[in-house]
């Protein structure tokens, strides 16, 4: 929280210097402020904030790339005469813990290639997903694991639970 409020404060200071309060100057201020926070993480105590923000940006890039792949793939299947759908419902043992993290994971999986989230078990330790075109069950699990791996750095160690995932390797 400290890092975020410092970043917003620096952005407001920047708009005061420029003397023009607009979305564009505010965005430039946020970027410049973020640069300052990442150059002096020790004296400002913002190392965690910088790391999490970079993880968010990395996840955003991963998300856009996979969303594009997913769309081209489904569009192709919609047009092919005999699409190789091979539908399955798989159970995926979750390492992410916490309602927020699991909600984001389920929503992301629905937009990723080949999978639509369908439900959780009552203990919230397993995610069930309908998959098409993902090959065998281990391959489908590996595809969901890729999404979870991209989300893990965003939610830190508190949200991680080591589980029986050996069969997905």
């Amino acid at each position: 929280m400290r890092g975020l409020s410092l970043n917003i404060l620096l952005a407001i200071v920047w708009t005061l210097f420029v003397g023009e309060f607009s979305l564009r100057e505010l965005a430039i201020g946020v970027l410049l402020g973020f640069a300052i926070l990442s150059i002096f993480p020790l004296s400002l105590g913002t190392g965690g904030y910088v790391r999490r923000t970079l993880a968010l940006v990395r996840f955003g890039l991963f998300f856009v790339r996979e969303l594009t792949v997913a769309n081209v793939q489904v569009a192709l299947w919609a047009l092919l005469p005999h699409p190789p759908l091979h539908p399955m419902i798989i159970a995926y043992p979750l390492r992410l813990r916490g309602d927020n993290a699991q909600t984001v994971l389920a929503a992301t999986i629905t937009l990723m290639p080949g999978s639509v989230a369908m439900g959780f078990n009552p203990e919230r330790t397993v995610l069930y997903a309908h998959t098409i075109g993902l090959g065998t069950v281990p391959e489908a699990r590996a595809s969901l694991k890729k999404v979870e791996d991209a989300l893990l750095p965003l939610y830190g160690q508190g949200a991680v639970q080591s589980g029986p995932l050996e069969d997905t390797a």
Binding site: A117, G119, V137
Partner: peptide, 30 residues
């Protein structure tokens, strides 16, 4: 991006738990 996956999730879950049979070529692990 927030609402579309949620509605897909709810539709899939409601259909499945109410007993709409999916056409599967693989296992149903749920």
């Amino acid at each position: 991006f927030l609402t579309t996956p949620l509605s897909a999730y709810l539709i899939a879950q409601a259909a499945y738990l109410r007993g709409l049979k999916p056409l599967l070529e693989g296992p149903d692990e749920w």
